[in-house]
């Protein structure tokens, strides 16, 4: 896989891919790339709620048609063969965009607080509203149609992250050359 494409993929996971990149990847004939995309959401379920994701985004008609024809995307355990079809790729796009958008603190300058109100990874991926075609603006799917997670589950996920991050930081602070100021990462969160 070309480095440029891989970088786009990485940016997508970080919610920072531009629409232009999204289109470029959509049109890619690179099988490895499509496989990567398919695998990105293999364990995710996409629910449509009767609405078409990407409603405002003008992507290739082939992909739009594929999304139209696909009522509930690719389920867990789908075969690689199926995953590699155009349909699966189209669904992957939806999954990737929402996947990236459901992260905390992602997308055009959303603050941590605002993001954590609306988004936590629930393990399930929902289609969210895409911003209309608008050139170089990062593709982000925060808020919009993302159903909110129950506060209990949300705080559970936060707690787990805190515990693991603290354990990780105990080791990282001795090894990242920055020393124990690394603990600010843990403390700043706990004392919110």
């Amino acid at each position: 896989m070309k480095d440029g494409i891989r970088e786009s993929l990485s940016a997508m996971m970080d919610g920072e891919a531009s629409e232009l990149e999204l289109r470029r990847v959509l049109r890619s004939e690179d099988a490895a790339l499509r496989a990567e995309w398919a695998s990105l959401h293999r364990n995710q379920q996409v629910m449509h709620d009767g609405e078409l994701p990407f409603a405002g985004l003008d992507i290739s008609s082939r992909v739009m048609a594929a999304i139209d024809d696909e009522p509930s995307a690719v389920k867990r355990g789908s075969s690689w063969r199926q995953a590699l079809t155009g349909m699966a790729v189209a669904a992957s796009v939806a999954a990737v965009v929402v996947f990236a958008g459901s992260e905390r603190m992602l997308g055009g300058g959303t603050s941590m607080l605002a993001a954590s109100e609306t988004s936590v990874s629930s393990g399930r991926v929902y289609p969210a509203q895409m911003s209309p075609a608008n050139g170089g603006v990062p593709v982000s799917a925060i808020a919009g149609g993302t159903p909110s997670m129950s506060p209990a589950v949300k705080s559970e996920a936060d707690k787990r992250f805190d515990v693991l991050l603290r354990k990780h930081t105990e080791r990282a602070s001795l090894n990242n050359g920055q020393g124990f100021v690394s603990y600010a990462r843990v403390v700043s969160q706990e004392s919110e």
């Binding site: 995710q44 992260e103 393990g123 969160q189």
Partner: peptide
């Protein structure tokens, strides 16, 4: 049961 991800800084 499924994949999840978090980000902070």
């Amino acid at each position: 049961q499924s994949d999840s991800h978090m980000r902070r800084g």
